[in-house]
Design a protein around this nucleic acid. Sequence first.
DNA 1: ACCTGAACACCGTTCAAGT
DNA 2: ACCTGAACACCGTTCAAGT
Lengths: 210, 210
Amino acid sequence: MAKARKRPTLTREGLLNEALSMIDRDGADALSMRRLAARFGVTPMALYRHVGGKRDLLHAVAGMVVDRIAYPIEGGDWRSSVAGCFQALRATCLRHPGVVPLIEQADALPASIFRPMEIVLAALRDAGLGEQDAVRAYFLLTTFTIGQVSYQTRGWATGVDAAEAARHGRLDADAFPNAARAAPRQEWDFDASFAFGLSVILSGLAGRIG
Amino acid sequence: MAKARKRPTLTREGLLNEALSMIDRDGADALSMRRLAARFGVTPMALYRHVGGKRDLLHAVAGMVVDRIAYPIEGGDWRSSVAGCFQALRATCLRHPGVVPLIEQADALPASIFRPMEIVLAALRDAGLGEQDAVRAYFLLTTFTIGQVSYQTRGWATGVDAAEAARHGRLDADAFPNAARAAPRQEWDFDASFAFGLSVILSGLAGRIG
DNA sequence: ACCTGAACACCGTTCAAGT
DNA sequence: ACCTGAACACCGTTCAAGT
């Protein structure tokens, strides 16, 4: 029985913030219009004065988070501006794990979602890569980064976790010798893994330039 | 008013197949226990004799698709076995777009999900890469592949689609000159983009080996 | 302008009952 | 063993009404 807060007025901003904190705390599934309304001690329908509907609410929350990403000021070589950009993207995504699927599914996001694209295109063009390849590189970096975050935030996707599977006997050492041997080795370091992937991609791109 | 089919008996396999074809046809959101039951002319509760619940159903469907992936027989250099493996993964995912999120979210999947891991680890170990880096490379390739497919199957994530945004005036050419210029250039070729990304990753990995 | 109340058309799932 | 029927506790959303 969650205590209803008394609020002077309902505002769109207040709704979005409360929705975000509910998602951060309990996951996106735990957010419903009715529960959100209850947090403000208000009828579900009261929300619809401020919020088009649930889709609109979710998109707006995703947009808030996207706008919150602090990309580092540019400068330096192309490698470090590209790296800094996706490190920033990753960092805020990790701070709001429940929002990542919402970003992936949003029909419309604020224009700031194109900051990474802009940075990558500018950096790679200056480095001498063709435009089409630059866009593909941006796509590559985005799917990689968001993918890494998605898997990390739901615990290295439980279904695909080899260590988990090994512990539960689902990973047969005869059929999958390498996987079975590598899996339980050590705790998985997502930061190091991301750094590795990023650096592999960047040196792969460097090969297309030099 | 969908016509109910008469079936001699309800089987788990029949349920899974029908569920998969509903997901393929109308997306995962269109699948509900009640609608699935209706397809068989049966009460919703009849399904529970064969199917733990909705989570179980969804995991089982994801598992079916995972088991269906036909990885090429190994042989040749490490680049082509790794490439072939993720091309196969991508191909079946594209054939069942609605299932991709289910695979990402499944708590448990058949052991065959570890085939790509096994292939990558074996190939990269033979090529001389360290075990830890090999696992990271596998993670990199997986997130990249699934990410590319996810974005493709929902139409290059509508919210992140620069061409869409440009068409709707959401992409300011002053603030995002490179993005605005690159966006509407041509139709996006997902196959070529995937091939590009894969090749960048592979040459990045080659740099760690040679 | 802003919120309420009742209602509608859905969900997944439990539980007891039929055959 | 397999399916039904009624019920429960939820959803998002509409529509008319209150203040």
